[in-house]
């Protein structure tokens, strides 16, 4: 992947940022879902999972921002994103979205710490958190889709795929941090969600490849070219195969489910890697 800058503008820092932004999106969605679905249970778990999800989201998105600054090479230029605004740019909107998202997460955490006895943040704040989490999850897809010359990055498939990947990694991240609290019932629920997510990812990825007007040479990169190891080992074996294998086993254990969640995170990173790099390069250019 050593092409000229003109053909590979988005490199590793961007892949890492996209993965972390997706993780933040999924973590908040998981946190809010858990808070509202478990509110009536009163078993004391809801605020713990909620706080874990929000802390994870804040750490993930701020770490992602550090990768963006590293990619820019200067924090001064990063501030230009705040002082200047182009309404037609997905990045410009994304900058504002992640800023408000972090502020919302911090405010919600303060609120939940103060209202320990009620375990609630109210419907408006909950809805805002969900809205901004969704925006954080899908706006990177629109950033890539603005590159009209890259046929792979079709927003029709990229938006749902990025959202599913975000939910996948975010839920996995929250579950990993709270695995000591898993019960047999939650393990069974988690298994069903895992199976659905894997099949959804596979369907979206195949649809994206078949619908795009990528040249045979560009498609070869995924299956036997420079991205093949990422695809076969990272995505197919670790990201899809292992979680499915674990989920279809009759007896679930916390240990195996933890390994499946780790597989999800590695697989999502690998899938984003091949989407970002596979969409660039001379073979993946318009007309190639």
């Amino acid at each position: 992947m050593s092409y000229g800058t003109a053909l590979i503008p988005f490199g590793w820092p961007i892949v890492l940022y996209l993965t972390l932004a997706g993780l933040a999106c999924g973590a908040v969605l998981c946190a809010v879902l858990f808070l509202y679905s478990q509110e009536k249970a009163k078993d004391g778990q809801a605020p713990v999972v909620f706080k874990t999800g929000l802390y994870l989201a804040i750490v993930a998105i701020l770490t992602g921002a550090l990768f963006l600054i590293y990619d820019l090479g200067s924090s001064d230029r990063f501030y230009l994103n705040f002082s200047q605004f182009n309404p037609s740019s997905a990045i410009a909107w994304g900058t504002r979205i992640i800023s408000l998202f972090v502020l919302l997460c911090i405010y919600s955490l303060i609120l939940i710490h103060r209202r320990a006895e009620s375990d609630s943040i109210g419907p408006v704040l909950g809805a805002l958190l969900v809205l901004f989490a969704l925006a954080v999850g899908i706006y990177p897809a629109f950033v890539l889709a603005q590159a009209v010359a890259r046929p792979l990055w079709d927003p029709l498939f990229l938006v749902p795929l990025f959202l599913v990947l975000g939910v996948n990694t975010g839920f996995a991240g929250v579950q990993l941090l709270t695995y000591r609290r898993w019960t047999d019932e939650s393990l069974a629920q988690l298994r069903n969600v895992d199976i659905a997510i894997v099949f959804l990812e596979i369907a979206l990825f195949i649809s994206m490849l078949t619908a795009s007007s990528l040249s045979p040479a560009a498609l070869d990169r995924f299956f036997k070219g420079d991205l093949a190891l990422w695809f076969w080992l990272g995505v197919v074996v670790i990201g899809w195969g292992w979680p499915l294998l674990v989920s279809f086993r009759h007896k679930l254990s916390v240990r195996s489910m933890v390994s499946a969640q780790l597989g999800f995170i590695v697989g999502a990173f690998a899938l984003r890697t091949i989407i970002v790099f596979g969409g660039q390069g001379p073979q993946s250019f318009l007309g190639a």
Partner: peptide, 23 residues
């Protein structure tokens, strides 16, 4: 210019380059 490279990705002609020194 903040050096985000979104323009480089968006150009169908590969006509924009990044001045590595200036970023």
């Amino acid at each position: 210019c903040c050096g985000m490279k979104a323009c480089i990705a968006a150009c169908p002609y590969g006509a924009i380059y990044l001045d590595a020194k200036a970023g």
